[in-house]
Amino acid sequence: MNRIDASDHYDESSFAAQTPSLLTIVIDTNPRAWAALHHVLPISKAIANILVFVNAHLAFGNDNQVAVLAAHTNRAVWLYPKSPNPDGGSYGRGQDVHMSGVEPELGTSANKYPQFAQIETSILTSLRALIDSTTAADLNPTTLISGALTIALSHIHKTSLAFEPPKTSTDPANPTTAAALTSSSTATPNLHARILVLSVSDSEPAQYIPTMNAVFAASHARIPLDTITLHGTPTFLQQAAFITGGTYLSAAANPRGLLSYLMFGFLADADARRSLVAPTQDSVDFRAACFCHRDVVDTGFVCSVCLSIFCGVPDGAECLTCGTRLALGAYGAKPAVVPRKRKKKKIARVNGSGGGEDTGSATGTPVPP
């Protein structure tokens, strides 16, 4: 009867709590790139697909969180949540987009989940203000991805601190503290965080160093960096997905299927991907940008001290980064060619005779019957 009247109680200690998941989305808002994609996929439809993807992520768990950033041509701007510092929340400028009128619009629809409505209103309002504030001088062919990645990592680190258990003591000699540190190193993480970049432009060689710094910081923190590209070839983001263990997908052949790519390729977090077959990259472009001219090179010169890359030999063979004088040795000299030694021909045995030198006689040695 307990099962029939739904009064059968279960032991709650046998069920593990779901680990919260934080999804940080970086949207490339380069006006020139979106103008090239307007006839295939307008930015309005792309944002609508992203909102559906965000709602699906939040619907997986009550503790799931989301953050959205816009990587513009000269700055990175928060789209959701609101910037905690309205005077200096954007990267590259001293002002942030003022999100006025967000709260009054939440009650316009009674058929929409309040959190979904709040995220949608905040993203659309902030994005509209960002586009309206863009001038002709801001129309650069590049995008500030490195600044957006840095802000995303800072937000993830700040959010992860809120999910850490309280510390009982700061004394390492305390047995309770030592046991807590040991258990925390072997226990499951308190937050599953990842970054998803929606790219529509090529990688800027001038941003190679700050981008790689953010990528290595994400790899050290075990934060996967996923990338989906709709246009162009983001070489550095492709390397970032490989280094951090993320997923890289190119939807340039069919940008209209953005929602399908997002739902089937990026909805699962890092923990769930262990049980799934995630998409892999066929080939990775590992080219780097030189430190002297910021050009992407296939072959270059690497400093043995600071690992700086140069497209040519610096003046005086001196590293431009650390000042170390490089020893090039015999670089540029022609290699010595050693003539090959001729091998003696081996003569096949005839009637049991040895394989010695050829005597010119075709008759073999007589053998007694």
Rank of each mutant, 00 (worst) to 15 (best):
I209G: 03
A206I: 04
Q207G: 00
A117W: 06
G147W: 00
G88W: 08
A268R: 10
N64F: 02
R325A: 14
E357C: 10
V66K: 03
P84V: 01
P175Y: 04
L130E: 02
L198M: 02
A36F: 06
A268W: 11
T150V: 12
L41D: 00
L41I: 05
R325E: 14
F310A: 00
H192N: 13
T299A: 15
V197Y: 01
F236W: 09
T24W: 00
A136P: 01
P224T: 05
V350E: 11
C290V: 01
T211S: 01
I43N: 00
L41F: 04
T121W: 08
A252M: 07
I151Y: 03
A46N: 05
T324I: 05
S185L: 13
P104Q: 10
N190K: 07
G257R: 09
P369M: 11
G94Q: 11
A187H: 03
T321I: 15
P86K: 12
F163G: 07
G329K: 04
N2Y: 11
I123W: 02
A67W: 07
T134D: 01
F216D: 10
D171L: 14
I47N: 07
A333G: 08
D226E: 04
P366R: 03
T235A: 10
F53W: 08
L69I: 01
T24E: 10
Y80H: 14
G352L: 05
E103W: 03
R325F: 14
F53I: 03
S353C: 15
K167Y: 04
A288C: 13
M263P: 03
L249A: 15
L79Q: 02
C311I: 00
S199W: 01
I347P: 07
H38Q: 06
C311M: 06
V284H: 11
S126M: 02
H38D: 13
L196N: 01
A46I: 11
T365Y: 07
L144F: 10
T176C: 10
L58S: 04
R325W: 12
P368Y: 12
V215K: 01
S308D: 06
Q238F: 09
I50F: 05
T24C: 09
P165G: 02
Y248Q: 06
S21E: 12
A76M: 05
C319L: 03
K346S: 15
G352R: 00
T108A: 10
H293A: 08
L130G: 00
T142H: 12
G61A: 11
I243N: 11
N254I: 10
N74M: 05
L22C: 05
A278Q: 07
V97D: 01
L23A: 08
I151K: 09
G300K: 04
A136S: 10
K167D: 13
A278I: 12
G232C: 02
A56I: 14
L191I: 07
F264T: 13
D28W: 01
I25P: 03
S13V: 13
A148H: 01
L51W: 09
Q95K: 08
L259R: 07
P369K: 09
P234F: 07
P165Y: 01
P165I: 00
T365K: 09
A137L: 09
H157T: 12
A217Q: 14
G88E: 10
A270S: 08
S183C: 13
G355K: 07
D282K: 13
V52R: 10
T125V: 05
S122W: 01
I119T: 00
P205N: 04
T244R: 04
I47V: 13
A46Q: 06
L69Q: 02
T177H: 10
A136Y: 08
A348C: 10
